[in-house]
Amino acid sequence: MGLLKDVVKPILGGMTLTARRAANLGKNIVTIQYPDEMREQYQRSRWRHYLTRYDSGLERCIGCSLCAGACPARCIYVEAAENTDTERYSPGERYAVRYEINMIRCIFCGYCQDACPTGAIVLRKDFELANYKREQFIYTKEMLLEKYPGQNLEPYRSKVTGVEAPIYTG
């Protein structure tokens, strides 16, 4: 008698649950198949920095170092220089001749973006930043600066599969 109560009944109970789940197979899957599928990103999620340009192609950054002043991790280094009429990088007198971010120390708080008076430094959605060597994390001005205005405005695409990460709107 004990066999039915102690062995068969629990097994049947368990299998019933499994069967019920099996009936729902394919529905309500919570797992996101990253990297084949990208999780939606929030509008204000902050990852990799970019230095943007004006539509004219001039750099927005004026090398004012306010981002470095605002940075709680002290991971930004800016060196400024003076524009000349023959060599013009940004409107006005001053531009950043060196701009470096230590991505490994950065905490992606976005204070630099808040502090920036010209909207030059922005944090976009590129979260795939892992790498092998410390030196690879010093992002220089060449790496940070957009090649053309609005280069990285489109939704982020995975480095691995090229799948687009949707922006969460709801």
Binding site: I32, P35, I104, F108, F127, E128, A130, Y132, K133
Partner: peptide
């Protein structure tokens, strides 16, 4: 830097890195 104590193979930036960023690190 933990690499002062043990040899580190992959660094994952972020504060904290999101799960997908960590998965990217594991893929690396």
């Amino acid at each position: 830097g933990a690499d002062q104590v043990v040899p580190v193979d992959v660094y994952v930036p972020g504060c904290p890195p999101s799960p997908d960023a960590l998965i990217y690190g594991i893929m690396k």
